[in-house]
Nucleic acid binder design. Sequence first.
DNA 1: TTCATGTATTCTGTATTCATAATTCAAGGT
DNA 2: ACCTTGAATTATGAATACAGAATACATGAA
Lengths: 218, 218
Amino acid sequence: MGIQRRPLREQIREELLLRLDRGDFAAGKDINEVVLAAELGVSRTPLREALITLAGEGVLESNQGRGFRFAPVSSKEFRELCEIVAGLESLALELSDPDELREMAPELLRLARGFPDPVAEQSEIEWHDDEWHDLLLGRCPNERLLDLVTSVKAGMRRYTHLIAGEDTLLEREAEEHCRIAEHLRAGDVPAATAALRDNWISGMERMTSRIPAAPGTA
Amino acid sequence: MGIQRRPLREQIREELLLRLDRGDFAAGKDINEVVLAAELGVSRTPLREALITLAGEGVLESNQGRGFRFAPVSSKEFRELCEIVAGLESLALELSDPDELREMAPELLRLARGFPDPVAEQSEIEWHDDEWHDLLLGRCPNERLLDLVTSVKAGMRRYTHLIAGEDTLLEREAEEHCRIAEHLRAGDVPAATAALRDNWISGMERMTSRIPAAPGTA
DNA sequence: TTCATGTATTCTGTATTCATAATTCAAGGT
DNA sequence: ACCTTGAATTATGAATACAGAATACATGAA
């Protein structure tokens, strides 16, 4: 590829999401723009542009005069996000060409089975999960829908690090992925859609207990 | 209410959406930030913040070095947006409390019937339609979902002015709204959901013919 | 001691300035 | 005549500067 020339705001946005994954930011804590800009080696302007973008995606919240903060986690919001993603992903599946889905099923199955690798890195696992879902939706012709899914999932990143080191959760996940892939291989899209919904809803229920109740935990 | 103190970027965003509704902007035409900022009486900074927000919502698109432009309309995108909103609104309906929906049904019916008012203003009609859908979804407990619907609908505003003066379209719309409300009154949420989906899909098909094919029409 | 009030400080929100990429147009060469 | 090339112009992307709101703190009264 040639020299990449992308707006700083996008690079900053990605860097912030990365840091979010690493759990660098205390949720609910105000962001100091000057400090963060200095840390990133950029000026406040593109930083603020990135912050505004993230606020639009629900990753951050902004209050007049008090700037931005990483939105505190709450089981209610997590539930809401899961419901949304479940709806969007199953919609994407319904809009995909059934034949192409069937073609893709073996690959999906292979990926799902190779899930609980020996002792994979945590970040590796999360990436793996994302990749599986991306592959699943890749054939959906509705590009706006795919963008939307990506955007909403960005808002869920605050919750992903909570599953750190939970092997049982991941096994259940892999199991359900297999089931979805099986349905697709059989050409039964409605069943696959239902299984996908279940995947998100049950995942939500498994997670919801480990979300701290009190919002203002310093 | 007290004194309103909101960031300029939000006010600017709304003003731009308003102008979009009025059809002030030629789709596909580049936006000159200096000129527009002067026109609005603000500096480029909050204007750019609003533009970035709108780009995140899909109303605008931005290309490196070439700034922002109102995304050209395309029947493909319109179809995609309709599919998304249909999915999101029916999801919202499914997540609502059936009893509350039934309580609300008479009001919905009343509004739907009062639809094709004598010779209402175009903007009035659009507002009326929005209000009906807002009322329909108002009882959904998933706040994030409602925000998302609002955001996606903002991206559809570029298409609303295309229905100007199409009475038959509006009549069909009112008719379908009645049908949805009837289902809700009967307590049949699945049927209402299906009707809502149909409402969007058929609306899409009715509209799709009047979207100019060529993107670069000055 | 506790609460209220005034002041100082910090940080955001907005404006302005600067640098550089993109576009336009004209001149020269094929 | 047409294409290429380069300078000039224009507009964006980014940095800096400024004004005002929000917060913290200290001082004083009840």
